[in-house]
Design a protein around this nucleic acid. Structure first.
Length: 300
DNA sequence: AGCGAGCCCTGCGCGC
DNA sequence: TGCGCGCAGGGCTCGC
């Protein structure tokens, strides 16, 4: 379940099950489910055994559950096809189950299955590290936000637009210094996190910006529209449970979201633009595709 | 700094 | 039916 809204749906569903719960057992069914874990399968299992879990945290597309007493966290990235499912003992695991956790806590006893068809996703147990963004904001004299530690491999990931600490003005300045295409910049998780191919196309459509526009040529107003529309579309998607085209992208109960009905650009090649009626164009981009309206989103 | 290519995988729908 | 191809919402590393 890739982009920010889908990962947030998982975080929200996971919170009541894991917060304050204790890990009773761990089983790595397929070692590819823990490729991000440095120490290997046995180390992963032993680091989680008996751990008391905190409230899950998300940054961009990364999700983690702190294990405060050990200064570590269980980190998850869902890749292209990862799912986190809450199951009871009697439910048979999915075909592509990679890791299973049995936890017991205030929310009761539950089995957590990490399922991932394509295995680009992974779990890991990692040490927490100081958030390097704290220093940067401090230098600018930013507001008095708390900057808790983050898992080591998340330290290079930018804040996402739903984070209250996200600084729109700083983002706009950085974006307009880039001599690269604006869509590429939106997908750069070190500039702004959480945006993937769907929401990049949707944000650019809403902002009326062509995906190949060189970021440094954007007006301040256009750059502002891009980030504000990115945030708006992700908030709307979240309120509808995320975007699902099939059963691949589901919440912790296996249910799909409804936002695919509300898409304006992504996946709509050849269909009329909802604003002007012109056919949406699909164009190859970075081994993927861009979708945009050739009339509303003019280059330059 | 930035970019393209390649890599990590499985499964689906399509045309032949 | 079967086969090969292109496609899929991500991210990391490499060489240039």
């Amino acid at each position: 379940m890739p982009e920010l809204p889908e990962v947030e749906v998982v975080r929200l569903g996971l919170a009541p099950a894991v917060t304050g719960a204790r890990v009773e057992a761990v089983s790595v069914v397929d070692p590819r489910g823990v490729t991000r874990h440095v120490g290997g399968v046995a180390d992963f299992e032993s680091r989680l055994a008996g751990a008391v879990l905190g409230a899950p945290v998300r940054r961009g597309k990364f999700l983690w559950v702190p294990v405060a007493e050990r200064g570590e966290a269980l980190l998850a990235h869902l890749g292209m096809s990862g799912q986190v499912l809450l199951r009871d003992e009697t439910t048979a695991p999915e075909r592509h189950v990679r890791v299973q956790l049995w936890v017991d806590g205030p929310g009761g006893a539950v089995r957590i299955d990490f399922v991932d068809q394509r295995t680009f996703g992974s779990l890991a147990v990692e040490a927490m590290a100081a958030d390097p963004l704290a220093a940067r904001v401090g230098r600018r004299g930013g507001e008095a936000f708390a900057w808790p530690d983050v898992p080591a491999s998340v330290a290079h990931i930018a804040l996402d637009p739903l984070d209250p600490r996200f600084d729109d003005e700083a983002f706009i300045r950085r974006l307009r210094m880039k001599r690269t295409e604006v869509k590429r910049a939106l997908l750069d998780q070190t500039l702004v996190s959480g945006i993937g191919n769907i929401y990049a196309d949707e944000a650019l459509w809403a902002a009326r910006v062509h995906p190949r526009t060189i970021a440094s040529t954007l007006s301040a107003q256009a750059a502002r529209r891009v980030i504000e529309e990115a945030r708006a579309v992700m908030v709307r998607a979240l309120s509808e449970g995320g975007t699902s085209f099939d059963a691949q992208y589901v919440n912790v109960n296996g249910q799909s979201g409804y936002f695919s009905r509300s898409l304006n650009a992504y996946g709509r090649a050849g269909q009329p633009c909802h604003r002007c009626g012109r056919a949406i164009v699909r164009e190859a981009f970075m081994n993927r595709s861009s979708h945009y309206c050739p009339r509303c989103q003019r280059l330059r």
